[in-house]
Simulated scan of single mutants.
Amino acid sequence: MSTQDSLFDAAGPRARRRIRILTVLSLLGIAGLAAVTLLRFGQAGQLAADRWVEFTQGPYLLFLLAGLGNTVAAAAASAVFALPLGLVLALGRLSVRPSLRRIATGWIEFFRSVPLLLVVYIFVSGLPQYGINPDIFWKLVIPITLCSSAVMAEIFRAGIKALPSGQSEAGLSLGLSQGQVMRSVVLPQAIRIVVPSMVAQLVVLLKDTTLGYAVSYPELMKTSNNLTAYTNHLIQTYLIIAAVYVVTNVLISHLARYLERRMSGRTARVRREALEAGIG
């Protein structure tokens, strides 16, 4: 059973043809909009060479690279904490213990419901009044981690629930404990299923770092705002920043596809080892 088939029905011949037609039309529409935009920019003189010369100079590039480095650092730290925390919350929500299930459910529903910016403001303006005043880096990373962990938890839970119950029943019938079944049989397959959704959330997480302005954290967007105020070249700066975000997200997607291929090759081996351990 493929990842796609486990989550929704595969498209038939007519549906695939409609999807291809809509995809082509959408791409043509986007290309046309981009062409019109560039034409208008050219007519307004925004594409003149003298408006781009700053971005070929070392100090400007280093300034932007520093902002990109801060963005990547905040996003990476948030992901490192949000992924395992989300997995723990997902397992808690699926637990047979009512207390664990209620705690995990409350956490997930709360942080899925509140806006991320509100949580950031709590760390900026609320908690310092009670003596809790972390560094600006953590004032951004902790709120992103809290909100992203709730979304990650639902992604992991969906992957686990998408697996046929026979997978767990087969492991239990071989004498494996519930924990061994979850660790060796269920989770490797569930994680492979949810890789596309995890990548989408990581892209959202990267874009969430743009809220760094609220804590004065010098991430890429904050850096570009400072650069715009200095050069007065708003269009040029934001086009370059947009291109940087696009390239970064494409690299994340390529990395995810690479990991998915690696995990697909390991899933069968992990399942076989689990079965051999149960038989032994």
Rank of each mutant, 00 (worst) to 15 (best):
67 G>W: 00
49 A>D: 11
112 R>A: 05
113 S>L: 10
254 H>R: 15
146 L>I: 15
15 A>M: 10
13 P>F: 13
54 E>T: 03
209 T>G: 01
181 V>F: 06
170 A>Y: 04
161 K>V: 13
63 F>Q: 11
245 Y>K: 08
247 V>I: 13
183 R>P: 05
29 G>C: 14
260 E>F: 01
81 F>Y: 04
151 V>L: 07
216 S>Y: 15
32 G>Q: 05
226 N>D: 12
48 A>P: 02
277 A>M: 06
46 Q>A: 15
95 S>Q: 12
113 S>R: 00
231 T>H: 07
105 T>D: 13
203 V>M: 07
249 N>I: 13
197 S>R: 04
269 R>Y: 11
19 I>A: 15
177 S>G: 15
257 R>L: 03
197 S>L: 08
52 W>N: 05
143 P>K: 03
12 G>W: 08
201 Q>T: 05
130 Y>D: 06
233 H>C: 05
225 N>I: 13
60 Y>P: 00
241 I>C: 03
195 V>D: 04
276 E>Y: 04
258 Y>K: 14
161 K>R: 10
105 T>L: 07
180 Q>P: 04
91 L>N: 02
50 D>Q: 12
72 V>D: 02
280 G>K: 00
50 D>M: 06
49 A>L: 14
54 E>A: 12
155 I>E: 01
9 D>E: 11
242 A>W: 05
83 L>A: 08
103 I>F: 09
58 G>P: 03
249 N>R: 03
279 I>F: 11
266 R>Q: 15
246 V>M: 12
190 A>V: 10
108 I>P: 01
15 A>G: 12
209 T>K: 04
230 Y>N: 10
206 L>G: 00
111 F>Q: 04
187 L>K: 02
160 I>V: 15
172 L>E: 04
24 V>R: 09
98 P>G: 07
